[in-house]
Structures are given as C-alpha cells and as structure tokens.
Nucleic acid binder design. Structure first.
Lengths: 129, 129
DNA sequence: GGCATACCTGCAAGACTGCGCAGGTGTATA
DNA sequence: TATACACCTGCGCAGTCTTGCAGGTATGCC
C-alpha cells in the first residue's frame, strides 16, 4: 500500500502507514485546491459580510449592501465581482438596479453552519425567514 | 425599525427594509470577523492539505505530514504553528516526535461538509473511521 | 435628446502572507 | 557525555490581495 510518489520515496518517515492514510485522505489534488479557493472567498471580513447580507437579506442591491456593511460602493462592487466570477452569487437586473442572490447551494450550507452561531443567536424576527 | 447607524443615515438606499434586514443578519461585528478568520485558516491549499491529513489520518507527525503533502518540513511546521495558535490543532509529544490532532470540533463539521465531496468519494477503507 | 443615477472596470499604492534558510531547543541513543 | 534526530523559531524575499481613485457603460426620467 505504497501511495507515496516515487520522487518522495526516500523521504524520512515516522509511521509509514499514517502517511499513506494521509495521502489517501487528500484524494485528487485539485479537490483540495478547489475547496481552498472556496474558503478563500469567505476569508475576507468585508467580503464575508457582503455574502452574509446577500444570503440572509435575499435579493439586494449594491447600494443597500454598501449601506448595511458601511463599505464604499466601489468596494462592494469589487467584492461582488469576485463572488460572481466564482459562481457564489448571481445578479438580476431590474431597471438600473442589480439585485444579487446566492447562487451556490454548498455555500448556503457553509453559511448555515457559521450562521447558526452568529446570526440565529440575534433577535430572529420570525423563525428562519 | 431603523438599524442604520447615524453616520450612515444620509446614505442613499434602494430598499430600506432590505438594508435593515442585512444589518440584522450581520449581528455583532466581531462574529463575522471571527468566522472570516476561521475561513482564512482554510484558504491556503497547503495549509488545508495539512489540516485534512491531520483530520483523517489521526494523530500524525510533522515528518509524515511533509511526506504526505510533499511540502518542506519547515513549511509544515509553519502551517501547524498558525493552526495551533488558532486552536485548530493540538500536538502531543511522544519522545522526540510530536503528533498532531484536530482540536476544534467546529472545524470537524466544516471539513466533513467539504470532505463529503473530496474525501469520502475515494476508496473509504471502513465507513467514517 | 439631455441629465442623473446605479453599477462596472483598469490602474497603482499599500499591506499582508507564505516560503525557505539559518540557527536554536529538547529528546533518545551510543 | 557526545552525537543524531525531530521539531520549533526569527529573518528577509517574493508573490498576492485589497483598496481607492478615475473613468466608462447602461438605464430611467425630464
């Protein structure tokens, strides 16, 4: 059960089988990188704030997001661009207003896991909206 | 229901109530930042790889982590330092070997959510270990 | 048609982060 | 006691990311 690549075959080891389990756990290299990219999307406080607002406050405009987060409208737009190209959010144009909504179901689960601790503890008006 | 801070009271808005909902969703400012920090921990592919290995391959040494991930042992140690001060992992010394294990239960859930798609699809040895 | 509004897009400055090297600490072995 | 090993810790460099400004595009209203 030697999953160790040939170029690392002579590297030192403590528990060889543990290393093999670890390699197995990593699966395809691309998978870890893809998830790291997804987490990177949530790693900036401002961007995460925007995303939480989009998640909980439904389809919402850039202007209102700026008001809610206290950010510059340009910064909000910039953050949304990243989220958009990553497929996290999608915008629907309504006249000259663009309202953004969550587009990635997995992100919904992720935010729910976090939101269970920082959003639901607040004065939730009526269940889960 | 005006949750808008006074210094933003004159900012433009599209749907005022949406902005209020968004502010409500954010809760305490510190909460969002705390979660952003948590996500930032998982945002680096190498660090995430280390964390996944620790998560799935149980208590494992720095040397074996380096072998599994293909990283320099110093880089692994560096990554572990960040994870350690953040409370994500903890190390148990056994002679001159230090074996690391997951220390944050919330991270376990987070990784399970991601792992359900990149780790469990591989040849899972025996259920969930 | 002309103007104001809502939003998007380059560009450059600044800050931040991760990596590798060199050196140090603690532990087991001869 | 002396040596080898596993790991940890400052330091400097390179790469990346975030931000703000200036300018552009698209839409609605007069």
């Amino acid at each position: 059960m030697h999953l160790v690549p040939l170029d690392r075959a002579d590297w030192p080891t403590i528990d060889g089988h543990r290393a093999c389990e670890a390699i197995e756990a990593l699966g395809e290299p691309g998978d870890v990188e893809a998830w790291a990219a997804r987490f990177a999307l949530l790693s900036d406080p401002h961007r995460l704030a925007v995303l939480v607002c989009v998640w909980r406050a439904g389809p919402i405009s850039v202007t209102d997001l700026a008001l809610a987060t206290g950010m510059n409208a340009t910064a909000v737009s910039q953050a949304l661009r990243l989220l958009r190209v990553a497929g996290a959010v999608a915008g629907d144009r309504d006249g000259r207003v663009v309202r953004y909504r969550l587009a990635d179901p997995t992100l919904d689960q992720l935010l729910a896991l976090a939101g269970g601790q920082f959003a639901a503890q607040g004065p939730t008006p009526s269940s889960e909206r």
